[in-house]
Simulated scan of single mutants.
Amino acid sequence: MTDDPGRPLTRVKGGPQRADLLELFFDLAFIASLTLVSQQMAAEQSWTGIGEALLVLSTLWAVWVTTTLITDTYSPRKRPIPYLILGIMFGVMLMSAALPTAFRDHGLVFGGTWAVINLGRGLVLIRSQRGRQGQERSVRALAWSLSAGALWVVGGLLDDPGWRLGVWLAALAVDYIGFGFRFPVPGRPALPRYEVSPEHLAERYQQIYILTLGELVLVSVLGLSHQPFTPDRIAAFGTAFLTGVVLWWSYAGGAGATLRTAIEASPHRARLVQTNPYAHWLMVAGVVGTAAGVERIIAEPGERPEGVMTALILGGTGLFLCGRAVLEHEVYGRVPLSHVLGVAATIALAPLAAHLPGLTVGVAAALVLVGVALGELLRMRRRSTPASVAP
């Protein structure tokens, strides 16, 4: 780490743009939170509970996205950036610990910690950028954080879970709108679009998606290890493995693998910076929901899924496919027909799910993903095969 006040904090153009080990260390805190969200989803029996789980997942995702944008703009080896990242990591761990009871006893811990992260980050960046270009963005972000932070704290103080959920939804909307519109302020010109390092940004999203798949692997292994090894549970375990493989291949063999090139070549690079978080959020939420469904299926393979469990199994698949379609559109400018048909298939299967064992529904969801992957594979082969020349 360097500590030269005369040197800028931003990354040096032409210098190393790879992700730093500190960033991978930070990701561990986020993955821990994914595990807790997945467990909460698996244990929930109500739509309100699923909504609460999605809200906390979206909040933690906002922490990850904003932290990644910091390390994309500022070198994580220049003080005070590494201390700022470690401070945010501690906050994420505290939020994760409060996550299971965020809508009961520890609402103020969860919401208040997120407010402190936002305010502390803004103050540190404003002080570090004193007299430098870019300070105005941090000042505006701090102003938006004050508004959202007040709502997070007020929500944490409310005793009624329904009111807390409503206030926190409003707070999260302020956070997302502020980021999406680059912290607008009445009477002031719009801030410049985000300048990014394509290599670093693409690598960070690739890393977090693969680490999210690790959550599915972990849930599958732990779920089977706590149960008797019956044929139907082993079949559920095998289905989970197949699902994980297809979720990996779909990303690694598609737009995810060419994300850096797409960002570099895109005439709308700034738009990609702002749409990437939402596309990847859909995929991450889909994987977490799928992991929760897998946990339930391995525990009770013959259980007929009610509405919430159906949403976890089929909805997780549908969310992932929606995210992949959005990413495909942003990278290649198209929406693959296979993804549209895959989402339609998950919707069509939903009414039948209540009459089938959970294992059968899980197999059906896996087959939908396999079908979409095969469609993608055939499309890529047609694109790579030279057109025949007529004699």
Rank of each mutant, 00 (worst) to 15 (best):
W114F: 11
H200Y: 05
M93Y: 11
A344M: 09
I297A: 12
Q39E: 13
G316V: 03
G91H: 08
Q39A: 11
H280Y: 13
G286P: 12
A387D: 06
P189R: 14
I117D: 01
G120Y: 02
Q40G: 13
S96Y: 12
L54Y: 10
S384I: 06
G51W: 10
V287G: 03
V109F: 06
R11D: 01
P301M: 05
G180R: 13
A98N: 04
L55Q: 14
L169N: 08
V139T: 10
P336I: 09
P198V: 09
P386Y: 08
Q135A: 11
S96G: 15
I208T: 05
I177Q: 07
L312Y: 01
T275P: 05
G253E: 14
P336L: 12
G316A: 04
G112N: 03
F30R: 02
F26Q: 06
A98H: 02
R296H: 06
A115S: 09
A373G: 05
I88K: 01
V326M: 14
A173N: 04
Y83I: 08
V196Y: 11
V167A: 00
L24Q: 10
L259E: 03
I88F: 00
L157F: 03
R11N: 14
P80I: 11
A235G: 06
W47L: 15
F25Q: 11
A43Y: 09
G315L: 08
L28W: 07
L172Y: 04
G333W: 07
L213H: 07
S33Y: 01
P82D: 02
T258Q: 15
M41Y: 04
G6P: 00
T258D: 12
L341C: 13
L213V: 10
G15W: 12
L94W: 07
L337F: 10
L157V: 07
I263D: 00
L69M: 15
